[in-house]
Nucleic acid binder design. Structure first.
Length: 884
DNA sequence: AACTTCACG
DNA sequence: ACGTACGTGAAGTTT
């Protein structure tokens, strides 16, 4: 049994040291945080290095202490504490609260005295004691059980002093003599006088000869040097006063039970939430990481709130009949974690074997079979009893196959959605990553034969996980976004995935055959022109043919060789017949491999439909993405590709495909966010925005805008939304960079509000470390402070783009939730099929078309009230192609 | 697994 | 002097 180890920290001293040692640092609201940051990193370092069993931080309580009664000028030369530091003391206290570290302070005593008193008492009780400070005075406390750690240059580096180390630092000095040393030398920083003319060297010599201040004066006549003797004589009072002032009171009236200082580790959720508030991003990661590695007691992080149950000791009951099920659920009052036991990791083809239902207190595995069917648990699953899942959409999908339709009324929460809102830049994260990051908890690996136990254990941990996440969601004002948008949307998306989109397989195959013939023909033509056959799909081989064999000029290089991208080939097209054919080949090959073959692979035999997956927790901006197949990038720009849309048909004869898309949604949002008068005016007048932009930028009447000018203005508008650069615009328009620069300057002159907004949002990103959307969706931009130009510029463009792109995502998501609800209320048969960022696709019986049009338009246009109107265009037809 | 290219908003 | 447009997914080649 190792001895108990008490670490005592001199809070004031460490905060001062950190404040002066670290460069200015602020939280998003401008509050200075550098001292707290240093203080916190130092404490975290101590926790991992020293592994204390007991811990406390001492603070000075009041400005005056018993020492001022003795000597009014004590610490009289101290500069006023800078305001930036004063502000950080309350933050430091809150930090300690968040880390569950006790604080101690006693009226009329300094932190030193508190530390000295407790240190001595603890040492007597057999503790190993470590005192942490930046103040050398504390060295007087050193003995064989008490060691002192003094900060060195930085803040986390510590010098460890035991008795030998003190003697090395002050040759021949015993710790108890530190006060005598101070008595003779004085200490300008505390305005302790000492004996003038006596410095460290002299004082040490005197003390090695006479042992103490008292000894020195007792043997004053033996002191070498007349001048020194005179000075000592003259300042006898000062010497004794100085020694008294330097002496730490180890008998302060403190009523502290040492056991109350026992340290069980912080509650990671609390710590992380607080560090987030302070914008200590690196510490959020660090604490998650450290805690996930450090699961051994006594520093078990979550032991204090009983959150992290012990895996080895974890037990659960198995429920196999309806009676046991009823009994189990009737006893739950708090939120229950639920994990479905799917037979296949792919939720689109998964069968439900069982279900884990658990809280940290009671845990069950529900096994479905003859005595208990899924339908028996249906009432509970759809009830409003609070339940926490991880990835509700997949659960809703799987349950639908059993006739159980979850809705937003069913009392569910989704920890995955909450985690995504807090850290969208992490992408689609798995359960274990969320536990590690949010709770500092390492989930056990799923071992052979322990699958059920793993599911039940994990389910039991979901409620506390969600509680942490929800706390932070609320503190970041994203509750509405979570409650009213993302959570209900999960059910809408599940339904859309379940519905799927009917694909006419015969048409698709016929289209593929047509493509195959054309590809065959064009391939032969290219080989003839090249004089050799090669792999047309290989940019490397193609580059050799074009640039080496045919001697065409290489315009651009990639990491690995010549670039053969479309924009390069387009420039080369006039120079050789082969180039256009290669472009044509690429177009056809893309359609064939990605769309015809790709789509054929994912048509479900049973339904004749494709069931895309919408990823709700993936993009950094809040958009959805779509995969297997991706139905958000079906060709439209070129007629050749657009024809693919003819294979997407309604499920039933006499139904139609109905499409509704927002007109210029991103520029309208920019108008709203920036408040730019010209832009707002343009939208209020419902003008063609690109023509209006061209008229302003090129200073011609709108009627006289040429098609080239409009095209260029359109590119400028895109550039603005993306976070413009002259280089990017030049590249896009294939014009000189200088000219692009003139366009941009001219744009900002005509739309000064946009310029102001762009400057402001970048500034805000720098100050807060993140940007937000209309619904408070947040994206962190750590690179905004990078010294690397490229990274910093990228972060700045992202700062400009994300509020626009993300707000558009908020808007259409909100519209989807409302449309779904309205369609259900109206008991429509029509179904929402797809979302493509600014448009929604439905299939609809012809006789519902008029009602659907009104319902959809109304909900899309009025999803939010902005300073410009929102405009929606609609269309319908027998196939997706015709809904234009 | 990384790279290139290209489809969409 | 630097070297980019914002957000995605899929296919094919090369390493």
């Amino acid at each position: 049994m190792p001895a108990s180890k008490l670490v005592l920290i001199d809070g004031n001293s460490i905060l001062y040291r950190a404040f002066f040692a670290l460069p200015p640092l602020t939280a998003r609201d401008g509050t200075p945080t550098n001292a707290v940051y240093g203080f916190t990193t130092m404490i975290l370092r101590l926790l991992s290095d020293e592994k204390p069993t007991h811990l406390a931080v001492a603070f000075d309580k009041s400005k005056t202490t018993f020492r001022h009664a003795d000597f009014a000028a004590y610490k009289g030369t101290r500069q006023e504490t800078p305001d930036e530091l004063v502000q950080q003391f309350p933050l430091a206290r809150r930090t300690l609260e968040a880390l569950s570290i006790p604080m101690i302070e006693i009226d009329q005593y300094e932190a030193d005295d508190v530390i000295g008193t407790i240190a001595k008492r603890a040492a007597e009780s057999g503790f190993d004691v470590r005192v942490v400070s930046g103040d050398k005075d504390l060295l007087q406390l050193v003995d064989n059980r008490i060691h002192v750690l003094l900060t060195r240059k930085g803040i986390t580096e510590m010098e460890h002093f035991d008795e030998q180390a003190v003697a090395r630092r002050y040759p021949g000095l015993r710790p108890a003599q530190v006060i005598d040393l101070k008595g003779l030398m004085g200490d300008p920083s505390d305005n302790i006088p000492g004996v003038p003319g006596v410095g460290e060297k002299t004082a040490l010599k005197l003390l090695s000869a006479f042992g103490s201040v008292e000894g020195v004066y007792h043997h004053l006549d033996e002191v070498q040097g007349q001048k020194l003797r005179e000075r000592l004589e003259q300042h006898r009072e000062d010497a004794f006063l100085s020694k008294r002032l330097a002496t730490i009171a180890c008998d302060a009236p403190i009523d502290v039970d040492l056991e109350a200082l026992r340290y069980e580790g912080p509650d990671p959720a609390r710590a992380i939430a607080w560090f987030r508030e302070l914008d200590f991003r690196s510490l959020v990661d660090k604490i998650s990481e450290e805690m996930s590695h450090d699961s051994t007691p006594p520093a078990s992080p979550a032991a204090s709130n009983g959150a992290a149950a012990d895996w080895d000791a974890f037990t659960y009951d198995v429920i196999e009949d309806a009676g046991a099920w009823q009994e189990a659920i009737s006893a739950f009052s708090e939120p229950v974690g639920v994990m479905m036991d799917l037979a296949d990791p792919d939720y689109h083809r998964a069968d439900i074997r069982g279900m884990a239902v658990a809280t940290p207190k009671r845990a069950y595995y529900v096994r479905f079979g003859e005595r208990l069917e899924l339908s028996d648990v249906r009432p509970w699953l759809v009830s409003d009893r609070p339940k926490v899942a991880f990835d509700l959409k997949s659960m809703a999908f799987a349950l639908d196959a059993h006739g159980i339709g979850l809705t937003s009324q069913c009392g569910w929460h989704d920890a995955k959605l909450a985690a995504y809102l807090l850290n969208p830049q992490d992408g689609d994260v798995e359960l274990d990553q969320v536990f590690a990051r949010e709770r500092g908890q390492e989930l056990p690996a799923i071992k052979e034969g322990e699958r059920e136990k793993w599911l039940v254990y994990t389910a039991s941990q979901l409620p506390p996980l969600f509680e942490s996440l929800a706390y932070t969601i609320r503190s970041q004002e994203m509750e509405q976004l979570y409650q009213e948008v993302e959570l209900p949307l999960a059910f809408v998306l599940a339904k859309m995935e379940i519905t799927g989109f009917y694909v006419n397989r015969e048409k698709l195959i016929a289209f593929g055959q047509e493509l195959a013939e054309r590809i065959e023909r064009i391939t032969q033509e290219i080989y003839d022109l090249a004089g050799t056959s090669f792999n047309l799909n290989s940019p490397k081989q193609l580059g050799e043919i074009l640039f080496d064999k045919l001697g065409l000029p290489a315009m651009k290089k990639t990491k690995t060789g010549y670039s053969t991208s479309a924009d390069v080939l387009e420039k080369l097209a006039p120079m050789h017949e082969i180039v256009q054919k290669i472009l044509d080949y690429r177009l056809l090959a893309k359609l064939q491999s990605t769309y015809v073959e790709g789509l054929l692979k994912v048509i479900r035999k049973e339904t004749g439909r494709v069931h895309t997956r919408f990823h709700q927790t993936l993009t950094a901006t809040g958009r959805l993405s779509s995969s297997e197949p991706n139905l958000q990038n079906i060709p439209i720009r070129l007629e050749e590709g657009r024809r693919l849309r003819q294979v997407f048909e309604p499920t039933y004869k006499d139904w139609v495909i109905f499409a509704a898309d927002y007109s210029q949604i991103e520029l309208r949002i920019l108008a709203h966010l920036s408040g730019d008068e010209a832009l707002i005016d343009a939208f209020r007048r419902d003008m063609d925005i690109h023509t209006r932009t061209a008229a302003d930028v090129f200073e011609v009447p709108p009627e006289q805008v040429t098609s080239l000018q409009r095209r260029q203005a359109k590119a400028v508008n895109f550039g603005i939304v993306y976070g413009i650069s002259d280089f990017g615009l030049a590249q896009n328009l294939n014009i000189p960079q200088k000219e692009a620069k003139r366009f941009i300057e001219s744009y900002f002159e005509k739309f000064p509000g946009v310029k102001r907004y762009m400057d402001e949002i970048v500034k805000q990103a720098r100050e807060r470390g993140y940007v937000t959307t209309l619904m408070n969706r947040r994206r962190y931009l750590p690179d905004i402070h990078s010294r690397n130009y490229q990274l910093r510029s990228f972060a700045e463009r992202t700062a400009m783009n994300t509020p626009i792109q993300g707000s558009a995502a908020d808007l259409i998501k909100l519209a989807m939730v409302r449309i779904d609800r309205a369609m259900r209320d109206a008991q429509m048969d029509a179904r929402m099929l797809l979302q493509v960022h600014d448009e929604l696709i439905f299939e609809c019986p012809k006789d519902e078309l008029a009602a659907l049009e009104v319902l959809v338009r109304d909900n899309m246009e009025n999803a939010m009230t902005l300073s410009v109107p929102l405009k929606v265009d609609t269309a319908y037809g027998p196939t997706w192609y015709d809904a234009k």
